[in-house]
Simulated scan of single mutants.
Amino acid sequence: MIKAVLIINTQGKPRLTKFYDIMTVEKQQELIRSVFGVLCSRADNVSNFMEADSIFGPGSRLVYKHYATLYFVFVFDSSENELAMLDLIQVFVETLDKCFRNVCEFDAVFNYSKLHTILDGIIFEGQVLETSSAEVIRAVEEISKCSPSLPPSCVCTFILYFLQ
């Protein structure tokens, strides 16, 4: 199961956070600070995979990719494959690139709800829902046609409907 998806800029500011385990906001902030502390201290030539037991508990793994000024981070347990998670980050970034024409930090700040909609099209409740960038984009476009400002509960229902 995927435990969390984070997008953090190079100064440590979270641009998107999605935790699939219930925890307090204070605990989430502490985890984000811990993850960023580890990421910014790692050399560029080391693996993008790491144990996250000390941060997220036993059996936790972390995979990340650094694009321009953003770290894309997935935290997951031992039931997920590390390479599949790395590929899922790539699918997420490719989908964002197609939606925003080369996604950047400003897109994450000013299109926060669209980022969450895209993420919900790929991962739902900690489980991988869709790995096709084209299918996720199609679902997001259909949702946008229905209503530009749907409440989050409706968005999840629409995503599940359009991805079937």
Score class of each variant (00 low, 15 high):
1 M>V: 09
6 L>T: 07
7 I>E: 00
7 I>T: 06
8 I>C: 01
9 N>G: 09
14 P>W: 05
17 T>D: 09
19 F>K: 01
19 F>Y: 12
22 I>C: 02
22 I>Q: 11
22 I>R: 09
23 M>T: 08
23 M>C: 15
27 K>L: 10
29 Q>H: 09
30 E>P: 01
35 V>H: 01
36 F>Y: 15
36 F>A: 02
36 F>Q: 01
38 V>S: 01
40 C>L: 04
43 A>L: 00
43 A>S: 03
46 V>W: 03
47 S>R: 14
48 N>K: 06
49 F>V: 13
49 F>P: 06
53 D>T: 10
54 S>Y: 05
55 I>R: 06
56 F>A: 09
58 P>H: 15
58 P>M: 11
60 S>C: 11
61 R>S: 12
62 L>N: 07
63 V>N: 13
64 Y>N: 13
64 Y>F: 13
65 K>P: 02
66 H>G: 04
66 H>N: 15
67 Y>K: 05
68 A>T: 11
69 T>D: 06
69 T>E: 14
69 T>M: 15
72 F>L: 09
75 V>P: 03
75 V>N: 04
75 V>I: 15
77 D>W: 14
77 D>M: 14
78 S>I: 14
79 S>Q: 13
83 L>F: 11
84 A>Q: 15
86 L>E: 07
86 L>Y: 07
87 D>C: 04
88 L>Y: 02
91 V>K: 10
91 V>D: 10
92 F>L: 13
94 E>Q: 04
96 L>A: 11
97 D>M: 03
97 D>R: 02
100 F>E: 03
102 N>K: 11
103 V>S: 05
104 C>K: 04
104 C>V: 07
114 K>V: 11
116 H>C: 09
119 L>F: 02
120 D>A: 14
126 G>D: 12
127 Q>K: 14
128 V>N: 01
130 E>S: 13
132 S>A: 13
133 S>N: 08
134 A>M: 02
140 V>Q: 00
140 V>H: 01
140 V>P: 01
140 V>C: 08
142 E>P: 00
146 C>F: 06
147 S>K: 05
149 S>H: 08
153 S>H: 06
156 C>R: 10
158 F>D: 02
158 F>Y: 09
161 Y>P: 01
162 F>V: 00
